[in-house]
């Protein structure tokens, strides 16, 4: 059974997850007491989450630490059983961990290696060939193609422990994509990489999405990843979807006004009210919040404060937008 193209790859309704912990009393006596009486603590990590992801989409699942996004991802890939709600991923119930389901998904853990450490990437790929039942010809073709796409052909036979972090992450990608998954979960895929390697991994994920039509669910704290990759973001806060839409809509949702950067030839002579509201931007520049005032009027006024040489409108950075969205109300119960 293949997933029909028109059907969403991920369909979640009213998804919820509750954890129950037992507090261990202090000391040995406490530990012995704990054998007979334990104090239970219940935490609702996810509640009433609705999510639908279409085939070929790249969705960023974002949220502050402890918001519940890891729980959501773990439920989506079958590592956790939901407490409430319905969940269907690639046409299956993830918690069943059926062979078909596991063969259709793939996960890249930025902090957990899937590659075998002491042998070459090719050896790990061979094991996955047996695991996912890939024919010899398909294997050869896919490895050659991934090798070219990821630029790892030369290092495929090098033991993984001798690879640089960037090379290793590209090899992890090759391993994750070998069986042509319908859905790829990328959990912090650029963590620990240098700037150049981050750009490479982002481009690769983009290429993979375009070339193979792979649906990607990205979780990352790096907003550059989010900006470069996702068409749509879902912000999880206190276990709920606080926002679901594209980045432009997210900026609008955050409601952070754009700023104007004015650069003068000499130090400008600002009126007191403007001076109060502005911040310095270099020796001869100032920054002002772009309010309701029409831009032509602002340019006209700014020209009177000194010899204006540059005028730029700057949108709020995604980090700032996220920080605003994350900090808006809504504590976990």
């Amino acid at each position: 059974m293949r997933v029909r193209l028109s059907e969403p790859v991920i369909k979640a309704q009213g998804l919820g997850k509750t954890y129950q912990f037992h507090r261990q009393p202090q000391g040995l006596a406490g530990a012995v007491r704990g054998l007979f009486h334990r104090e239970a603590t219940i935490v609702q990590a996810v509640r009433g989450l609705d999510l639908s992801v279409g085939r070929g989409e790249v969705v960023g699942l974002l949220g502050p630490n402890g918001a519940g996004k890891t729980t959501v991802v773990k439920m989506l890939c079958g590592l956790l059983v939901p407490t409430t709600g319905s969940l269907e991923v690639c046409g299956e119930r993830p918690a069943d961990r059926s062979h078909t389901f596991l063969s259709r998904i793939s996960v890249i853990f930025g902090q957990k290696a899937m590659l075998w450490w002491d042998v070459s990437t090719r050896e790990s790929l061979k094991i996955h060939r047996s695991m996912y039942g890939i024919s010899r010809d398909d294997f050869r073709t896919t490895v050659a193609r991934l090798g070219d796409l990821l630029g790892i052909t030369d290092v495929l036979d090098t033991p993984v422990r001798h690879l640089s972090l960037g090379q290793r992450m590209r090899c992890e990608l090759a391993l994750a994509l070998l069986h042509r998954p319908t859905l790829l979960f990328a959990d912090e895929p650029t963590i620990g990489l240098d700037v150049q390697a981050k750009v490479t991994v982002r481009n690769l994920l983009r290429d993979i999405n375009r070339t193979f039509g792979t649906t990607i669910v990205l979780t990352s704290h790096d907003m550059n990843d989010v900006e470069a990759l996702t068409d749509r973001v879902v912000v999880v806060k206190a276990g709920q979807a606080a926002f679901d839409g594209n980045l432009a809509a997210l900026r609008a949702h955050a409601g952070i006004p754009a700023e104007v950067v004015l650069t003068y030839r000499d130090t400008p002579n600002l009126p007191p009210d403007v001076s109060r509201k502005s911040t310095k931007d270099g020796p001869r520049g100032i920054r002002l919040r772009l309010g309701d005032q029409p831009v032509p009027e602002l340019v006209h006024a700014a020209a009177r404060w000194g010899e204006l040489v540059d005028f730029r409108i700057v949108e709020a950075g995604l980090d700032e937008v996220m920080s605003k969205v994350f900090s808006e109300g809504g504590e976990r119960p």
Partner: peptide
């Protein structure tokens, strides 16, 4: 350490 996850998402 949670490294078990890397095995649980594999079909074997």
């Amino acid at each position: 350490s949670g490294r078990l996850d890397a095995w649980l998402v594999r079909p074997c």
